[in-house]
């Protein structure tokens, strides 16, 4: 699993299935959520942006956590693939966080009356976006790929330790945002016909993330290993066949 050629094989076989399945799940979730779920008694139809906003916010946070996990793998075992994972995941995480910020602003305008509020959760999402940009800036400024991987790993591991402190300190402001939609310990606060499409959307977003990640990991592996025998063989086969 850890060796790039093996992962490349595996990802190439999986991807033709992964993309259609992700689109299918996402379509079911979005069409159900936007077209058929009941409208909210207070917010009307505006709330439907939740089907984009919440999944992307969840993704933005969990990709950062994944990066820290793979970062520690990269630092401890020097696994090449973990470093490549970091490089492929960081732009995706930044994009999902940006989508969460923008969709949140679009949602905030009709419900709160402003595009932006300096509320705890908005602020920590913005800081998360800055952290992603810092990581991307760091590894792209280092020419040596392995060093770039390890520097990015280190900053994501240190960052994930500091992120809870950032969250806690930002929480000390008064919070205007509604409490989290999902909780593992308590039952959902919305009806099943709103909750289920949202859940499907979250799963669909995860699938899209995995497909995009596999895709860019393949590109990263090819670029990185372009001087090895197996890549040459692969490219020759591609060119002739």
């Amino acid at each position: 699993m850890g060796s790039p050629p093996f992962f490349f094989e595996w990802a190439s076989r999986l991807l033709p299935w992964l993309f259609p399945i992700s689109f299918l799940i996402l379509m079911i979730g979005l069409v159900w959520g936007i077209g058929f779920a009941p409208s909210d008694y207070k917010q009307g139809d505006v709330y439907r942006i939740i089907f984009v906003h919440v999944p992307s916010a969840i993704l933005g946070q969990s990709i950062y956590l994944m990066m820290a996990i793979f970062g520690s793998i990269c630092l401890i075992w020097r696994a090449k693939l973990a470093g490549m994972f970091l490089r492929s995941a960081a732009p995706l995480g930044a994009s999902f966080t940006l989508i969460a910020l923008i969709s949140g602003a679009v949602w905030g305008k009709p419900t709160w009356g402003t595009w932006w509020v300096w509320d705890a959760r908005l602020t920590s999402t913005l800081i998360l976006f800055f952290l992603y940009v810092g990581i991307i800036g760091l590894y792209s400024s280092i020419d040596n790929k392995q060093r770039g991987d390890r520097a990015a790993s280190l900053i994501s591991v240190v960052g994930v330790i500091i992120v809870p402190i950032i969250k806690k300190s930002v929480d000390w402001w008064q919070t205007l945002h509604q409490p989290s939609t999902f909780s593992l310990t308590s039952s959902p606060s919305m009806t099943a016909d709103m909750y289920l499409p949202l859940l499907i959307c979250v799963i669909g977003f995860y699938f899209i993330f995995v497909s995009l990640l596999c895709n860019s990991l393949r590109a990263e592996i090819l670029t990185r290993e372009r001087n090895t025998g197996w890549v040459r063989k692969y490219l020759n086969n591609k060119a002739s066949g």
């Binding site: 800081i127 800055f130 952290l131 940009v133 810092g134 990581i135 800036g137 760091l138 400024s141 280092i142 900053i155 240190v158 960052g159 500091i162 402190i165 950032i166 806690k168 300190s169 930002v170 000390w172």
Partner: peptide
């Protein structure tokens, strides 16, 4: 590298200290 890069990396991490 330039100082501005390290500032972009470190400034978000220093927010708790500021608050």
């Amino acid at each position: 590298k330039t100082a501005i890069l390290s500032a972009v990396i470190v400034l978000p991490l220093s927010i708790p200290i500021l608050i």
